[in-house]
Design a protein around this nucleic acid. Structure first.
Lengths: 67, 67
DNA sequence: GGAGATGGTGCAATATACAGCACTATGTGG
DNA sequence: CCACATAGTGCTGTATATTGCACCATCTCC
C-alpha cells in the first residue's frame, strides 16, 4: 500500500458516491486544502485524517499479515 | 480502526517477532522516540510512518468498503 | 545490590501536515 | 461568450509529527 494506491482508492470512491472535494471536506470537517493536497499526492496524511476520510466514504482500514 | 487498535496490533506483532522498540527503530530507520510515542498512543502517525513499520513487521494495510 | 535491557515521558529543534485565501485551468450548461 | 462548479497549486501561519537527548521505572540476571 503506497500513497498512490491510497489516492486512487479515495478518488475513485468519491466519484462513485458523486461527492466533490468540497463536499468531502464539509462531511469530514477536514480543510478543503488538505483534501486537495492529499488527492493530488502532495502530502503524507496522518492516520486520523485518513481514517476520517475513509469513514465518510463508507470504507475502513484493516491490517493483515503479509503472505 | 482507531489509534488504540493500531497500537495494539503493532505491539503484539512486535512481541511475537521478539523485536524491541530499539530494533524496530533501526529496521525501519524511524527514530526511537517516534516508535515510543506511537506505541504509547501519544502521537498520530503519518501514513508513511505507519506503512514503514507495518512492512517491517511483515504486515500491510488494506482498505475495504464497510458492510 | 549493581548492571544492562526495555519501555515510557519531558524538553527542545526541525520538518511538515493542516488550513485558509487567492488564483489558474478545465469542463459544463445557459 | 459568460457564469458556475470542480480540481490543482502557490503562499502563509499554525499545529503537530519526528527526532535526539536525557531521565525514570521495571524487570532480569549476575
Amino acid at each position: 500500500m503506497h500513497v498512490g494506491d491510497l489516492v486512487n482508492v479515495i478518488k475513485e470512491r468519491r466519484k462513485i458516491l458523486r461527492i466533490s472535494q468540497k463536499e468531502l471536506s464539509e462531511l469530514t470537517d477536514i480543510g478543503l486544502r488538505t483534501i486537495k493536497g492529499l488527492e493530488s499526492g502532495k502530502t503524507n496524511p496522518t492516520f486520523h485524517t485518513l481514517v476520517n476520510i475513509l469513514d465518510v466514504l463508507g470504507m475502513e482500514l484493516s491490517i493483515k499479515t503479509k503472505k
